[in-house]
């Protein structure tokens, strides 16, 4: 039990320190929620009983967060640690494997809990979504889902032989989707969306500028 508590504290510290993990698995669902919520928050979704887009998104992004953190994040961390030899080194210590696995899992569940809280609070502040009614059921299904994804994630690591590659994020997604939808569904032409076009172009320019300014041949903090 002492070892479990120690490992849990350590894993939480490691989670907070890992910036790549924090961005891709933790922040990304929140960013998507805010971006998509700003675009579609007030639309009504007929197939879901005319629920508001923001409410619908909130549920969806919490689901996405569960997969992103508990499944992808955990699998990536375990594979990286195994392939870099960290797990082998840990095995020489008195830390028992069950304490390690449960502590690692718990740290990711804690991250997911913070994520859910952040999405609910942001939903309330930005899109006026009420607090969920059935708290008990919600907590139970989120816990069950997250543990199940995490189990699957750990299982998946048995299949992945080497490090996982990241897929780059596309922030101007909202504007892009708006035009794509307009062109495909409503027969619009591209120039009917000057504002969105400007935003996509601005993101593109920003990206290129950042890419040129920030390009490095070598690892950022080596040596």
């Amino acid at each position: 039990m002492r070892l479990f508590r120690h490992e849990l504290k350590s894993e939480l510290l490691l989670y907070v320190r890992s910036r790549e993990l924090a961005f891709f698995t933790f922040l990304f669902p929140i960013i998507l929620f805010v971006l998509l919520g700003s675009s579609y928050g007030n639309d009504r979704i007929k197939s879901e009983g005319n629920v508001r887009g923001a409410n619908f998104l909130e549920a969806g992004m919490i689901g996405y967060g569960a997969i992103s953190i508990a499944f992808a994040g955990l699998a990536i961390v375990l594979v990286l640690r195994r392939e870099s030899g960290v797990l082998k080194r840990l095995r020489a210590t008195p830390l028992p494997a069950p304490a390690y696995i449960v502590a690692l899992l718990s740290s990711f569940l804690a991250a997911f809990a913070v994520e859910v809280l952040a999405i609910v609070v942001l939903g309330r502040l930005l899109f006026s979504i009420g607090a969920p009614d059935r708290i008990g059921s919600l907590v139970l299904i989120l816990l069950l889902g997250a543990v199940s994804f995490a189990g699957l994630g750990i299982g998946l690591t048995a299949l992945i032989r080497s490090a996982v590659r990241w897929i780059a994020a596309a922030l101007p997604l909202t504007y892009f989707l708006r035009i794509v939808r307009g062109v495909m569904l409503h027969g619009h032409e591209i120039w009917m969306y000057p504002g969105s076009l400007a935003m996509i172009a601005a993101w593109g320019v920003l990206g290129v500028v950042l890419a040129i300014r920030g390009f490095r041949w070598e690892p950022v903090e080596a040596g």
Binding site: L13, L14, R17, S18, S84, G85, K88, R89, A92, P94
Partner: peptide, 17 residues
């Protein structure tokens, strides 16, 4: 394991600590 210490052939550690 509490009584032994190990240095493996290659270093492996958490880069962010």
């Amino acid at each position: 394991r509490d009584r032994i210490g190990v240095v493996l052939q290659s270093s492996a550690m958490y880069q962010t600590l």
